[in-house]
Simulated scan of single mutants.
Amino acid sequence: MGPRQQAFDRGLAHATAHAAHHGHLAVPVDHLHDDFPLGRWLATQRTRAHDLTAERTAALTALDPWWNPPWPITWQRAYHAARRQTEQDAAAAPAGEWLTAQRQRVGRLHPEQRRLLENLGLDLPDAAASRAKNSLLPARERAFERALAAARAFRQREGHLHVPQRHIEEIDGEQVRLGQWLSNLRRRRSSLTTPNKRRFLDLWE
Rank of each mutant, 00 (worst) to 15 (best):
I73S: 13
A20M: 04
R146V: 07
W181Q: 04
K197E: 11
D126R: 07
T53H: 02
F200A: 04
I171C: 05
P138S: 11
L52D: 07
Q102Y: 00
W75K: 11
L178C: 10
E55S: 15
T100V: 07
A151P: 04
H33A: 13
R115E: 06
D35T: 14
L12N: 03
R48L: 02
D51W: 02
L25H: 13
G159R: 11
D35F: 14
D126G: 09
K197V: 08
L185N: 14
Q156C: 13
G11E: 03
T61R: 14
D9F: 06
R131G: 05
A59H: 04
L185S: 11
G96Y: 06
G107I: 00
L63S: 05
S183G: 06
T53I: 02
E55D: 15
A59S: 04
A7G: 04
A78Y: 10
I171K: 07
L52T: 04
L52E: 08
R186E: 10
A15P: 01
T53E: 05
R77F: 00
E170P: 00
R115W: 03
A129R: 05
G2D: 08
R114H: 06
L136N: 01
A129Y: 01
L109V: 01
A91G: 04
A143V: 12
E145W: 06
A15Q: 02
A26C: 11
L192V: 09
T47Q: 14
T57L: 07
R77W: 04
A19D: 11
G179P: 09
W71L: 06
A101E: 08
Q113I: 00
